[in-house]
Design a protein around this nucleic acid. Structure first.
Lengths: 227, 227
DNA sequence: CGTTTGCTTGACTATCGTCAACTTTTGTGG
DNA sequence: CCACAAAAGTTGACGATAGTCAAGCAAACG
């Protein structure tokens, strides 16, 4: 997912569509209609409450969706990586803000065009639904994490999701996001995230060669901590 | 929503469909194809990981969806009231369990039939998507609550959602669910829920004539506490 | 090379959880 | 209808996990 495994090839999600790039389905629609656009680090892609004019796909880089309380407390809803779709609102307005985590390339497709196309293309309609349902599933898993898991379990869970499919060897995970982003994603503070990373390192589950690079030594160890 | 307002009529969500009961859209599909079924208090409607064979609509009663960790910690994802659809999985398996909170009547429609119908009925397809997207939006709001709000803010937020649209007068809210359900929904313990109810009562925001009946005296007061 | 930003660590605090006792409500059988 | 038991809810004392405040360190940037 967010990882680069030493043992496996890069997981290219842009080819994940069951219909490939020949013009059917969501990926196909994006390839036909979507204009790529550049966003700088921390640049807003859209804001909460704005009309949902476009659907989006990450081509390069990383995106976070956020919600804020008046006093500045922030919750990150999800991170998106190349191949991922986001902004799939069914309502007329965005319920989250979206920002580029690092310099990123994003494809934009007119929401109206896609919906019009979906009314003629059953496959596309079903993919829109499936994609939203997948987001819902991820959100529900995240509710369990936020409502019931300890700090250690949250970090372990986060790292496992970054590490992707189980592998025997070590996995090097590159983090595109800051400690603050991780904290706001996991419902913690940066201090707790930092301390918990250190504890996982002490427990020999991970190594921290640098703050943005993490070596997952023991997926099973993390899984044991995941609750 | 979950409330009974003294000033307004009962909000009958089963008539909420933009197309009414004449056979178009999701409500119409349910009226044509769905078989009503009775579930007793705490009875499981479906289990996490089971194949998603049906889509569901609450006719009478109340439903909760839950996820559990091995050690018994539980997170409730959502509550559903008459008119609400649930189990709208796009994947082949349910990602939550669903249980009746009290004796309830639920309509079941074969997932396959609805999907087949959606491939011919654009309105239905779009409603399936919209309904899932609405669930996603609710889930995202709940993530902010679970990740970033205090116990008092969580309760205030919960009560406001039960109270429904702002009204000048008092609102009597009947709770179909136990303190444990509320706690598992808000990511708290029953003790904290109980204490926080008492504090809201001391602050004159609510009255507690009985444990399952709450009088919201000051919606604005709750809104101020909601963060 | 110095400044800024991000990250880590430490000391202390507060909020919420745990454990336990007690009260109220609900349900059941005589 | 009452009496008792079981379940649900409330309250209190105490503790633990995570938050706050603050200092120091490391990496990134001009």
């Amino acid at each position: 997912m967010l990882s680069t495994s030493q043992a496996t090839h890069v997981n290219d999600r842009s080819t994940r569509s069951p219909h490939g790039p020949e013009g059917h389905g969501l990926s196909g629609a994006f390839e036909m209609f979507a204009a790529p656009m550049n966003f700088g680090r921390d640049e807003e892609i859209y804001g909460e409450g704005e009309p949902a004019e476009y659907l989006y796909q990450v081509v390069r880089g990383a995106v976070r969706t956020t919600k804020m309380l008046e006093d500045g407390r922030r919750q990150i809803g999800a991170f998106y990586r190349p191949g991922d779709f986001f902004g799939l609102e069914a309502g007329e307005e965005h319920s989250f803000s979206a920002e580029a985590i690092c310099s990123s390339v994003i494809r934009l497709a007119k929401r109206g065009s896609i919906i019009a196309m979906a009314s003629r293309d059953t496959t596309l309609a079903s993919e829109l639904w499936t994609s939203t349902a997948r987001s819902l599933r991820v959100a529900q898993d995240h509710m369990l994490l936020l409502g019931r898991k300890t700090a250690e379990e949250r970090l372990a869970s986060f790292l496992l999701s970054l590490a992707g499919a189980p592998t025997s060897g070590q996995i090097i995970v590159e983090l595109p996001m800051s400690r603050q982003d991780i904290a706001d994603y996991l419902g913690l503070t940066i201090e707790t995230v930092s301390r918990t990373f250190t504890r996982l390192e002490d427990a020999a589950a991970i190594e921290l060669p640098s703050s943005r690079r993490i070596v997952v030594r023991s997926q099973s160890g993390l899984r044991r901590l995941n609750g």
